[in-house]
């Protein structure tokens, strides 16, 4: 806010005020410096790397090339040097998107009733529920994923129990399957769905529900016509908070997929590891980033939209 012509005395006061405000801005500098140098510049760097040639032992050769992007879709034939369509990477991206979408839908189906149930508890119980959901949210993902692995292994708890009770006589193979990865994703990101849903449902004015019943709506109609529309911001936020990290997930497919069912995250890490093709890994990372930005764009558009309530 700028002010109209000031009296000389007031100008001094206003300038002092502005000076304090201006000095306070510089307090953001340490954070900005750290994140810019060690967070933004590395991203710029992989943008550059994606247009260079790989060095055979990892790293890059400073020579311009679009191979990384071409290699994403094509493979150069070793004999006649022609480009041939190779959908391997595309399949991994497609699979990742499918896994992420599927996880999001299941999280929503499980998360919405849970969040609603939490929001309708008495206040002191609510805090306990939130804590119960928050603990897995922040707990060590690696350890939690390893715990899943122990349970679904061939000689894991589930198979042991089923064999013990003679329901089966040969272990069911669950580890290193699509099922294992999706279970891992679901388990990792379920709290990411429940918490935003809960916070939008908790703010909801339940007198609106009463008004709905008063106007002859059934329980199902109230849910469909009143509660779900009002919870829409939470549904969108929760869905994106599950979809985005699930798309770039690294740990669950690494441990539960066993290298057989790769997702984008493992693919990228592989290029920087055993693949020794940093430009290709950089290009793959940027394509993932682009997908995330598209999702974030839809989110920001939705958030500034006219959906507002109580």
């Amino acid at each position: 806010m700028m002010d109209a012509p000031l009296s000389p005395a007031a100008q001094v006061a206003a300038e002092n005020d502005m000076a304090v405000s201006r000095r306070s801005r510089f307090l953001t500098l340490p954070s900005l410096f750290i994140v810019f140098v060690f967070g933004v510049l590395p991203l710029v760097l992989i943008c550059i790397y994606s247009f260079l040639k790989p060095y055979q032992n990892g790293g890059v050769v400073w020579q311009f090339s679009t191979d990384a992007y071409l290699n994403f879709l094509f493979q150069r034939d070793i004999f006649d040097d022609t480009l041939q369509f190779a959908p391997d990477f595309l399949i991994i991206y497609g699979r990742s998107i499918f896994y992420a979408l599927f996880t999001t839908v299941v999280c929503l189906l499980l998360g919405f009733p849970t969040a609603y149930f939490m929001a309708t508890r008495p206040p002191e119980q609510r805090n306990w529920w939130v804590l119960l959901i928050t603990i897995p949210f922040w707990s060590n993902l690696l350890v939690r994923t390893v715990a899943i692995m122990f349970i679904i292994r061939d000689e894991g708890l589930i198979n042991d129990l089923l064999i013990y009770f003679h329901i089966i006589n040969k272990p069911i193979v669950m580890l290193y399957t699509d099922f294992a990865i999706i279970l891992g994703l679901l388990y990792s990101f379920l709290p990411f769905m429940i918490l935003p849903l809960y916070s939008s449902l908790e703010k909801m004015d339940f007198r609106l529900v009463e008004a709905g019943y008063d106007l002859y709506a059934s329980r199902w109609q109230v849910l469909k016509r009143i509660i779900i529309p009002l919870a829409k911001p939470g549904i969108v936020a929760g869905s994106l908070l599950v979809f985005i990290p699930a798309l770039g997930a690294y740990v669950p497919p690494l441990i539960l997929g066993g290298g057989r069912h790769l997702m984008i995250g493992d693919l990228i890490a592989q290029q920087f590891g055993s693949g020794r093709n940093w430009p290709l890994g950089s290009a793959q990372a940027l394509i993932l980033m682009a997908a995330v930005l598209v999702a974030l764009y839809f989110y920001s558009r939705n958030e500034t939209g006219p959906v507002k309530h109580g």
Partner: peptide, 24 residues
Amino acid sequence: MIINLPLMVPEIITAVATLSFFAL
């Protein structure tokens, strides 16, 4: 936005970018 950037970028991308940066 810059301060919150690490929350928006998938962690694996941050990881490989940081690796590249330190290698450089």
